[in-house]
Amino acid sequence: MAKSDKALVWGLFAAGGTVTAFVTPVLVVLTLLPALGVLPDVLTYDSLRAFADATLGRLAIVAIVVLSLWHAAHRLRITLHDFGVRADYAVAVVVYVAAAVGSLAAGWYALAL
């Protein structure tokens, strides 16, 4: 039998899972802090804008967004399969196209802003 190309989407899923496992809790905390009235200098608009303007910061943001999208897409595909949705091909096309569009949008924003 031929080897499957599913390795490509699984690789993005695994990388995205690792990234989101580390980054998502941090983002939750960083979002809650200002909501609770705690606003350290590092979370002000100017410093976050400066972070996003630096090439490395911008690359990090794009990488996190893109990998999270592909992780979520593959997770959704597996979950739907486990819930008994048998249209795997159609589901795969929809979720991966969404992830691809999101990835392109993230790249475009990173270049345009």
């Binding site: 039998m1 031929a2 080897k3 499957s4 599913k6 390795a7 699984w10 597996i78 399969h81 486990d82």
Partner: peptide, 17 residues
């Protein structure tokens, strides 16, 4: 072995339940 286990019917059917 990879020809079998890296195929679609191989390890990729596993959803890590």
């Amino acid at each position: 072995r990879q020809q079998e286990i890296a195929a679609t019917e191989g390890v990729w059917e596993c959803s890590f339940v």
